[in-house]
Simulated scan of single mutants.
Amino acid sequence: MGNPLILNGYGIKITVDNGRLVIKNGNRSSEEKPESYYLQPNQKKITSILIYGQTGYISLEAFKWISLQNIQLNIFNWDGSLLSSVNQEKENNGKRKIAQYETYLDEDKRLGIAKNLIKAKITNSIKILDSLPFPVIETHLIVPYLNEVDNAKDIPELMGYEATAAKIYWKEFMKAIPEKWGFVERSGRESSDYTNTMLNYGYALLEAECLRIINTVGLDPCIGFLHEMRNEKRSLAYDLQEIFRGEIDVVVYKLLSKGYRVPKTDFLRMNNYSLRLREGGTDKLSKAYETRMSERIEYEGKLIPRRKVIERKGFELAEYVEGRRENINFLY
């Protein structure tokens, strides 16, 4: 997402005045005066707006301004899940979408893509565990399930291997998280421990990134190859997200383990005992995410930001479903 503007608190306001986008951040306390921002057209300092705020409004003219300037607007729920992502589709390629639908209906091709996704996810999980400085972590326990992926006869069987590998991964990853954070297993939304809460917020940032790339390459985010289609699901975004989830795990590990840069005061316990991140926590997590995604890694002989690797994989998938690429490989 590049350089994000993070908005928190109550009373957020986004309007347009004299051709400028006028943004008022939310009030976090009665004493604090919220910041204001003024963006000129074609000003490239802000590439995305992340809204974690509780109340406020965006004018219709502001939506138009944001769309014309190709700024991604992401709105998050209190638990960190992505409620909405507004980004302009760069390539409205009808033929590409038709090719995507045809590939989805081809059971062999769909299973082949799904296998490659899971191979990449498990391989990356092994790399993440190997990178953690804890000798008690037993990475080798996951390897047999990576070897079983090619033997899967259908997607349910494939998902079974992935689920078992993930269960082992989290058991080993847990060894690297200090006990004070109460991480005993991976849970979903409305988590009650600090680690899962941060993971949920981080995965939502990654989901928004994947949606932007899917729109950029002109694919349909609702038609995935691993995750089933449902009315409320962004299945293809979840597919692409699987490859890079480990990057979020590293971000959370560093925030919780390197001097405890996220204190417990950055969390708020809700009435149902689940946790949410306060403004300071979302700021720290979003900035750590940007740092990770901006780091350059080697890909096909070149050093490029991790974010660009996600884009490359999106383009490669688009080329594969169109028949312009003979094979698909999500490893990086």
Rank of each mutant, 00 (worst) to 15 (best):
G80Y: 11
K33N: 10
I98N: 08
K109E: 09
S29M: 05
T47G: 05
N116Y: 09
L68K: 15
A114S: 08
D17T: 04
E32D: 15
R110G: 00
V16P: 04
D17A: 06
T55N: 08
E32L: 07
N77G: 05
K44I: 00
R28G: 11
N93M: 10
N92F: 12
L105S: 11
V16Y: 03
I49H: 04
L82N: 08
S81K: 12
E89S: 15
L83T: 05
K115D: 00
N92P: 06
N42P: 00
N116K: 15
L73A: 13
I71V: 04
I113D: 01
S30M: 10
I75L: 10
F76A: 06
R20K: 15
K95Y: 14
I113F: 00
R96W: 12
K90G: 11
L111C: 02
N70S: 13
V22G: 00
K97I: 14
D79L: 03
Y38D: 04
I51C: 11
E107Y: 09
R20F: 15
Q54A: 11
I75P: 05
S67Q: 02
I113A: 03
N18S: 15
Q40Y: 13
Q100A: 01
V86A: 04
L68S: 14
T55D: 08
L60R: 04
Y38C: 08
Y101V: 12
I66L: 07
A114P: 07
T47N: 10
Q88Y: 11
I49A: 01
N92Y: 12
I14G: 02
K24L: 13
N87Q: 08
I66A: 00
G53H: 01
K97E: 13
S67W: 10
S48V: 02
G19Q: 09
T55P: 03
Q43V: 09
N70V: 02
I75E: 01
E35F: 12
K64I: 12
W65M: 03
P34G: 08
Q40K: 14
P41R: 07
W65S: 05
T103V: 05
V22N: 11
N42L: 12
W65E: 03
S29L: 14
V22D: 00
Q40P: 00
Q72A: 13
N74L: 15
K97Y: 10
Y37G: 04
W78K: 14
Q69W: 02
E31A: 09
N70R: 14
V22Q: 11
L39T: 07
L68A: 12
S48D: 00
N93T: 02
I58T: 09
L39V: 14
